[in-house]
């Protein structure tokens, strides 16, 4: 029999083996993140190309303010730290630690999205920078809007995991569920680490 000749040491058919010492779901998240790099690279390129296109309406120096966006940056950095602590708790089987840090992470996500909603509303109503006012506005809102959408999706994801953790459904053996969400969350954070200086500080400081 051919197949038997190919495999003289047949092992338990139920056990999933992976060729690399990394779970497939985690590898897939990394592959997705690699792909997202190009997504945000395109959005950032467009912003950098169009940031001076504001013959009509206000430009970057008229609308951007450092304090608010620094607060947002701090919140996202905080949340990266929080989620890594939550993951640590999940891996150690420390439910209290997991719940404490994970709920703080979700709170940060909500706060960041709220900050962005406030920022956009402020720009539109008080600075009169509508979505289609000029190309600076369109490319800025599109870039940060898609980043904000990523934050919102991540917040939703982490919130469902918080619910699971609350019900005790994330034992150490299932910490991978949180680890994958955390990878995504950190990626969203590093994108903001690029956006903060390139979009805000460099547009202001010229």
């Amino acid at each position: 029999m051919t197949t038997a000749a190919l495999d003289l040491h047949a092992h338990d058919a139920g056990a999933h083996h992976t060729s690399m010492p990394v779970p497939s779901r985690k590898l897939a998240m990394w592959v997705f993140i690699a792909s997202e790099c190009m997504f945000f690279a395109t959005l950032i390129s467009t912003f950098v190309i169009y940031r001076d296109s504001h013959a009509k309406g206000p430009g970057p120096k008229d609308v951007f303010g450092v304090p608010l966006v620094t607060a947002g940056t701090a919140v996202l950095l905080f949340s990266s730290f929080f989620v890594v602590m939550a993951l640590n708790g999940a891996q150690q089987g420390d439910r209290k630690k997991l719940l404490r840090w994970l709920s703080l992470t979700v709170l940060c996500g909500v706060f960041f999205v709220g900050m962005q909603v406030y920022e956009f509303t402020h720009f539109v109503t008080e600075k009169h920078l509508g979505y289609t006012t000029n190309l600076f506005a369109s490319s800025f809102y599109t870039l940060t809007g898609f980043h904000g959408t990523h934050v919102a999706v991540g917040t939703l994801w982490l919130a469902t995991l918080l619910k699971d953790a609350w019900k005790g459904r994330i034992p150490p053996a299932k910490a991978l569920n949180l680890e994958i969400a955390a990878l995504y969350w950190h990626f969203v954070d590093v994108v903001w680490i690029i956006i903060f200086p390139v979009v805000y500080l460099m547009s202001l400081g010229r």
């Binding site: 010492p21 990394v22 990394w30 592959v31 690699a34 190309i49």
Partner: peptide, 24 residues
């Protein structure tokens, strides 16, 4: 973690950077 993950992320970052610079 696994080296291959570093390569994966590193390669796409390098490519993304090159594309940003080239477009600009």
């Amino acid at each position: 973690d696994l080296k291959v993950l570093q390569w994966l992320f590193g390669f796409s970052l390098v490519l993304a950077t090159i594309v940003i610079m080239a477009l600009f």
